[in-house]
């Protein structure tokens, strides 16, 4: 009995291809951000907010730097909401109660969305916690940033300010 080798190889290749995990694509500057509607505190929340400069932040209650970023985001919200900045913080806790406990300690004055399944995170290609993106009014990604510390805060504010000035 002869078995043609190419066929065997093809079969192996097929199985390997099928078993390969779907690659997590990450959004890059200039890409169109996926438009999502997520559960909010009361009403559904649009991510990103259409026609507005949106700062999208992916966070979780167990993430240390996220804890630091909340007061800063509150500050940014207070400073730049009037100029047209929208902040949407997407929570990725698997248990929404964890997020609730976090928000009781550190309230967020901006829009907060909940995605317990984490689908939005894989669509946006979140590579670390927290990950934030600045999305322009045209829906295109302007900036992608991973992590958060005090040094980042200054750089991020500068970024927000320059993009606010650039958007009419």
């Amino acid at each position: 009995m002869t078995v043609s080798m190419p066929r065997t190889f093809r079969a192996v290749a097929l199985v390997l291809l099928a078993s390969a995990a779907t690659p997590v694509l990450s959004l890059e500057v200039g890409d169109l951000a996926p438009v999502l509607s997520l559960q909010g505190r009361e009403a559904p929340v649009a991510v990103p907010v259409t026609g507005k400069l949106t700062y999208v932040d992916f966070w979780a209650s167990w993430c240390g730097p996220c804890r630091k970023s909340f007061p800063w985001m509150n500050q940014m919200h207070r400073k730049y909401a009037a100029e047209g900045l929208e902040i949407v913080a997407v929570n990725l806790d698997q248990d929404r109660a964890d997020a609730g406990a976090f928000l009781e300690q550190i309230p967020g004055d901006f829009r907060i969305a909940f995605d317990t399944a984490g689908e939005s995170a894989s669509l946006y290609g979140v590579k670390g916690m927290p990950t934030s993106l600045l999305v322009g009014p045209d829906g295109k990604v302007l900036e992608v940033h991973a992590g958060f510390n005090e040094k980042d805060a200054e750089v991020l504010e500068q970024m927000i300010r320059s993009h606010l000035e650039a958007t009419p």
Binding site: S19, A21, Q94, D98
Partner: peptide, 14 residues
């Protein structure tokens, strides 16, 4: 058999 094993995503590290 290893196919269903997927790496833990950053948001799944609770």
């Amino acid at each position: 058999g290893c196919a269903p094993i997927k790496p833990v995503q950053p948001w799944e590290k609770g």
